[in-house]
Computed example of a mutant assay.
Amino acid sequence: MINWTILLGLLWASSALACDTTGKPLISIDKDAPRVEVFLEDMKLTQPFSVQIKVCDHVDVIALDVDAIMPAHQHGLNYTPTIVDVGDGVYRVDGMLFHMPGIWEIRVNLTQETGVIRYTRTVTLR
């Protein structure tokens, strides 16, 4: 019985730590926006990569859309990423691919009953 209690406590603690500033915060101009973090893996030019998005606050997410653009060039990704809801507010985004070096803006649209909240995070690929 004690082993199960410890295991459940560790599982609960690890999910709580997922939003304890371990990811990079996404920025929203909506002052009431729930905290959302992005976890970026090593991104290499012209190589597919994945990101993880964590919605830290308990909100009902109807849809989550992820895209990226190069603001200086006004173009986006050549491929549409795949988004998988892995549970507990965590989404894995596969198939991201930056085809040019420079400044990219990752854009996340979180749809909930009250509307869409837009988030961004700027990354530089060299």
Rank of each mutant, 00 (worst) to 15 (best):
P81A: 01
N3K: 12
S15H: 01
M100C: 10
S28Q: 09
L110R: 04
L64G: 04
R35G: 07
I69Y: 01
K54N: 11
F39C: 00
G102C: 05
E105W: 02
L10V: 12
L26I: 09
K24G: 02
K44T: 13
V55P: 00
W4K: 14
D88E: 08
L8H: 04
M1K: 06
H75I: 11
V61R: 00
N109A: 15
D67K: 07
V90K: 08
R126A: 12
W104M: 08
A18Y: 03
V84E: 11
I6D: 03
D20C: 04
Y91R: 00
F49I: 08
R35H: 04
T80E: 14
P71M: 12
G9K: 00
V90Y: 01
V108H: 06
T111K: 13
R121M: 11
F49D: 01
P71G: 08
I29V: 09
L110M: 13
A18W: 04
V86K: 10
Y91A: 03
W104Q: 06
V108K: 01
G89W: 00
G115L: 04
L125V: 13
P48V: 07
D94H: 13
P71I: 12
G76I: 04
I69A: 00
Y119V: 07
D57P: 07
A68G: 05
V66D: 07
D32G: 02
F98A: 11
H99A: 15
L77H: 06
P48M: 05
V51S: 11
L110V: 13
I6E: 07
L97P: 02
V38E: 04
I29M: 11
W104R: 06
D32P: 01
H58Y: 10
Y79M: 11
G76H: 01
V86Q: 12
G76V: 06
D32Y: 08
L26W: 07
I62D: 15
M1P: 03
R126C: 03
L26A: 09
E105K: 12
I69H: 10
T120G: 02
T111L: 15
E113P: 02
A16K: 11
T114E: 15
A33N: 03
H75Y: 11
A33Q: 09
L45M: 14
A13N: 11
R118S: 13
R35Y: 10
G102I: 11
M100N: 08
V116F: 05
L26N: 00
C56T: 06
L64P: 04
R118A: 08
G102D: 07
M43S: 05
T124Q: 12
V123I: 14
G102F: 06
G9L: 15
L8G: 03
H99R: 06
C56W: 02
V93I: 12
T120I: 07
I6R: 09
V116M: 10
D85G: 11
